[in-house]
Computed example of a mutant assay.
Amino acid sequence: MFDRCYLSAELLINWQRRQQDAHWLVPVKGNTKYRIVKTFGEGDHLVEMQASPHARKLDNTLPEFWQARLIECEEGPGGYRGFITSLTEPETYPKDALRYVYQERWSIENGYGELKQFQLNTATLLRSQKAKGVYQEICGLLTAYNLIRMEMSQIAREAKVAPLRISFVMAMRLIQDELIWCSLGKPGTIPTKLRKMRENVKQFILPEKRKRPKERTVRISKTQYPVHSKHLK
């Protein structure tokens, strides 16, 4: 599964040429041009795209046109509206299953981002210097992340909102603070502290994501020199 910046005929065609059983899936860009060749169902098409002259100049084995399967989606995490894939058989690879797989991929990537950016505070290296210590540290980080997520799910259930509307940063900070206080208090006070913590986290429920009112556009930098850009009309 590639990010949209890897949508390239040269990369994707040659990726599949190297091994027949190798497949790919990548979100479409806003300016991706294609022609629908066949429709398998609602939001599920076989499309044809043109390889750029520049790509064919670098690799003369590329065809002038190449085909892929386009599956449209509602705008989701990352702003994607659909993706193309080499899995072109709808009977073998149902569109709903592929949509689920790609949405799951975004969830995993968001989890990695939260773990690296907030839990590790963007640290580039682990503290451990030995292999055994590295495994132990990674295990501790993953355990802590899943415990925070489990608590967020419980808070969301009580607040009757989706878990993604609970702020991970605020939940993590409040849980860290409560763990420190719980270590100093008596065991009998822990349930009360947990209930109070959950009520505090509810203050940081994120608003529902609004749909973008206008299409995303590229802002052209001002310059005194003539500019030739594909974004200018």
Score class of each variant (00 low, 15 high):
Tyr6Lys: 00
Ser8Ala: 11
Ser8Leu: 09
Ala9Cys: 04
Glu10Gly: 03
Glu10Tyr: 06
Gln19Ile: 01
Asp21Tyr: 06
Ala22Gly: 03
Leu25Ser: 02
Val26Pro: 01
Val26Thr: 01
Pro27Ile: 00
Val28Phe: 07
Val28Met: 06
Lys29Ile: 02
Asn31Asp: 14
Tyr34Gln: 01
Val37Leu: 02
Val37Asp: 07
Glu42Thr: 10
Asp44Leu: 01
Leu46Asp: 03
Glu48Gly: 00
Glu48Gln: 04
Met49Gly: 01
Ala51Gly: 01
Ser52Val: 00
Pro53Asn: 02
Arg56Pro: 01
Arg56Glu: 02
Lys57Trp: 04
Lys57Asp: 07
Leu58Arg: 03
Asn60Glu: 11
Leu62His: 01
Pro63Ile: 03
Phe65His: 04
Trp66Asp: 01
Glu72Ala: 13
Cys73Asp: 15
Glu74Gly: 06
Glu74Ala: 08
Glu75Cys: 06
Gly76Glu: 15
Pro77Lys: 07
Gly78Asp: 09
Gly79Ile: 01
Gly79Ser: 05
Tyr80Val: 04
Phe83Ser: 05
Phe83Thr: 07
Ile84His: 08
Ser86Cys: 00
Glu89Thr: 06
Thr92Val: 10
Tyr93Asp: 13
Tyr93Gly: 04
Pro94Phe: 06
Lys95Tyr: 09
Asp96Pro: 02
Leu98Glu: 14
Leu98Thr: 11
Arg99His: 09
Arg99Gln: 13
Tyr100Gly: 11
Val101Pro: 05
Gln103Tyr: 12
Trp106Gly: 10
Ile108Lys: 10
Glu109Cys: 12
Asn110Tyr: 11
Gly113Asn: 14
Leu115Asp: 13
Leu115Met: 10
Gln117His: 05
Gln119His: 09
Asn121Gln: 13
Ala123Ile: 10
Thr124Asp: 14
Lys130His: 15
Lys130Met: 12
Lys132Arg: 10
Gly133Trp: 05
Gly133Cys: 04
Val134Glu: 13
Tyr135Lys: 07
Glu137Trp: 05
Glu137Met: 02
Ile138His: 09
Ile138Val: 14
Thr143Gly: 06
Asn146Phe: 08
Leu147Arg: 04
Arg149Tyr: 12
Met150Ala: 15
Glu151Leu: 08
Glu151His: 12
Glu151Val: 09
Glu151Tyr: 13
Glu151Lys: 07
Met152Trp: 07
Ser153Ala: 15
Ile155Tyr: 04
Ala156Gln: 08
Arg157His: 14
Val161Pro: 03
Ala162Phe: 11
Ala162Arg: 10
Pro163Cys: 13
Arg165Leu: 09
Ser167Lys: 01
Val169His: 03
Met170Asn: 06
Arg173Tyr: 11
Cys182Asn: 09
Leu184Thr: 08
Gly188Asn: 14
Pro191Gln: 14
Lys193Asp: 11
Leu194His: 12
Leu194Cys: 13
Lys196Arg: 15
Lys196Asn: 15
Lys196Ile: 13
Arg198Trp: 06
Glu199Asn: 13
Glu199Cys: 09
Asn200Trp: 08
Gln203Tyr: 00
Phe204Ser: 02
Pro207Lys: 11
Arg212Asn: 13
Pro213His: 07
Arg216Leu: 11
Val218Glu: 15
Arg219Phe: 12
Ser221Ile: 08
Lys222Ser: 12
Lys222Phe: 12
Thr223Arg: 01
Tyr225Cys: 05
Tyr225Arg: 04
Pro226Trp: 05
Pro226Ser: 05
Val227Phe: 05
His228Trp: 13
Ser229Gln: 06
Ser229Ile: 04
His231Phe: 14
Leu232Gly: 03
Leu232Arg: 03
Lys233Gly: 03
